[in-house]
Design a protein around this nucleic acid. Structure first.
Lengths: 234, 234
DNA sequence: CGACGATATGAGCAGTGTCAACATTAACAA
DNA sequence: TTGTTAATGTTGACACTGCTCATATCGTCG
C-alpha cells in the first residue's frame, strides 16, 4: 500500500564484472571494487545530468549513483561538489573557445567574420544552455575560488578580442583602448543575448525561429557595421 | 577541533514581547505567539540575506530563524521557498523599472538619455548584485513557473523599448521591427555588461573605477550613436 | 461565551554535502 | 613468496535542508 519504496537497496554494490573492452581507455579495468576510471565517469555523468536537470539540481550523491559508486567515492577525486562543477565549467569554456577559433579560421576577415563569431557564440549557448548557465555562475555563487575557470574564461574572451583587433586594424591603428571597448561590448552583447534567449526572456522571438534568427542577424550585423564608423561613402 | 556547534538551542521560541512601537506599520503588533506581520518580515529578512550570501545559499529555515519564527511558519505565507524568491525577484524588477522611468523622465530626449538609461541599469545591477542575479535565474533554474516575475520583467523591458522607440522616431518612422531590434540589442548589451561586471569577468576594468567607468561610457555612447546612422553631417 | 479561521509550532521524512574510520586492491620491496 | 604502502571505495554519522502532517494558539465574529 502506497510508498512503493524504490531504491530500498540504498546503494547496492554492483557486482557485475565491468571490463569494458580490454582497456583501451580504462587503465585497470578492474573487476568489482575499484572502478576503472572514476573521475572521467563522474565528469561524464555530471555532464549528462547537467543538461538534463540544470546546475542547481545536480547533486554529488546523484552523480555518484549514476556512476555506480558509493555516495562518498567522488571525494577521492574532487575536494567538493563545486570542484566537479568547476571542471565542467572549465571544459565548457575550452569548448566554446574551440568553436570560436574554428569559426574565425573558417571565415575570411571582415564584417561577416564578426557576425559569424557572434552566431557561433549564440549557437554554443543554445546548444548547451545549462552548461552555459553554469559557466557564468548559475548555482555556484562565484567562480573566484576556482582560478582555472577564470583562466579558461579569459582565454575564450581573448578569441573575441583577437578577432575584433584584427577587424579594427583595417581602419587605422588598433589603439588598445578602442579594441578593449569593442571587445567587451561584443562579449557583453553576445553574453546578454545568450542569457536572455536561454532563460526565455525573449520568449516571443524564440517562438518562430525564422523571426528570431533574423532578429539576431540584424543585431549582429548592425553591431559589426558599427565597428567601422564610416563603412561606405554615401 | 573545530565544529564549535553553535545553535544548539535548535529553535528556541522567543518569548520577548515584541511590540515595536504602537504599530504604525505592524497592524496587530501581537504579544508573543502571533507575529504581527510575518510575510513582510520574511521578505525583509530574505532581502537582507540575499545580498549578504547570494541566492543559492538562502535557506527557507534560515529566513524563518532571522524573522524569529519556527522553521515551518513561512509556509503559511509562501507555498514554497521558490515563491519567496519570486516575490523578491518581482519586487526587484519593479524597482528596476522605477529607476528606468525616473531616469527617462529626468533627462531630455536624445542620445544622452539613452546613455543615462544604460548607466541607470548598470548602477542598479552593481548596487544589488545578488538581487540582480536572482532576477535572472541564479539559484532558481527557471522563472517560467512564476508568471508574476515574467510580467515584471516584461514591464521593465518595456521601459527600455519605449525610450528607444522615441529616440528612433526622431529620424523617420519607428518601424516596429527596427525598434525591436534596437530595444533587444540595448537590453542584451546592458544585461551582458551587468552580468560580466557582477561576476568579476571584467575584473581588470573594475579594479580602477575611473578606467572602468570610462570604458562603460564609451560603450554606451558608441551604442547610442549607432542608433542614428548618420548623427551629424560630416 | 463558543466556534471558527488564520496563524504558529513540533515531529518527522527524504534528501543533501561533508567528514572520519574502515575495507579492498594494485604496486612494489624483501 | 610475503609484507608494506598508497590509491581508491565503502560505511556510518552529523548537521542541515525543503516540505508535510497533526497539533496548538490566537483574534474575531456570532
Amino acid at each position: 500500500m502506497s510508498s512503493v519504496n524504490i531504491n530500498k537497496a540504498r546503494w547496492e554494490p554492483r557486482l557485475v564484472t565491468r571490463k569494458k573492452d580490454t582497456g583501451t581507455l580504462s587503465p585497470r579495468s578492474a573487476g568489482t571494487y575499484h572502478h576503472g576510471d572514476l573521475k572521467a565517469a563522474l565528469v561524464a555523468a555530471a555532464g549528462e545530468m547537467l543538461e538534463r536537470e540544470g546546475p542547481e539540481s545536480i547533486s554529488f550523491r546523484a552523480v555518484a549513483r549514476a556512476a555506480g559508486v558509493s555516495p562518498t567515492a567522488p571525494y577521492n577525486h574532487f575536494p567538493s561538489k563545486e570542484d566537479l562543477l568547476a571542471t565542467l565549467a572549465g571544459a565548457g569554456f575550452r569548448e566554446l573557445e574551440n568553436c570560436q577559433v574554428a569559426t574565425v579560421a573558417a571565415t575570411q576577415s571582415g564584417q561577416e567574420r564578426i557576425v559569424s563569431l557572434g552566431l557561433a557564440y549564440l549557437r554554443f549557448a543554445e546548444t548547451h544552455p545549462q552548461l552555459y548557465r553554469l559557466m557564468f555562475g548559475a548555482g555556484v555563487a562565484d567562480w573566484c575560488a576556482h582560478p582555472e575557470v577564470a583562466e579558461a574564461k579569459r582565454a575564450s574572451f581573448r578569441a573575441i578580442r583577437d578577432a575584433l583587433a584584427e577587424q579594427l586594424s583595417g581602419v587605422g591603428d588598433p589603439a588598445e583602448e578602442a579594441v578593449d571597448t569593442a571587445a567587451i561590448a561584443a562579449w557583453a552583447l553576445a553574453h546578454g543575448l545568450s542569457m536572455l534567449l536561454i532563460d526565455g526572456s525573449l520568449g516571443a522571438a524564440k517562438d518562430d525561429p525564422s523571426h528570431g534568427k533574423s532578429l539576431i542577424m540584424r543585431i549582429l550585423t548592425q553591431f559589426a557595421a558599427g565597428l567601422t564608423p564610416k563603412p561606405s561613402t554615401r
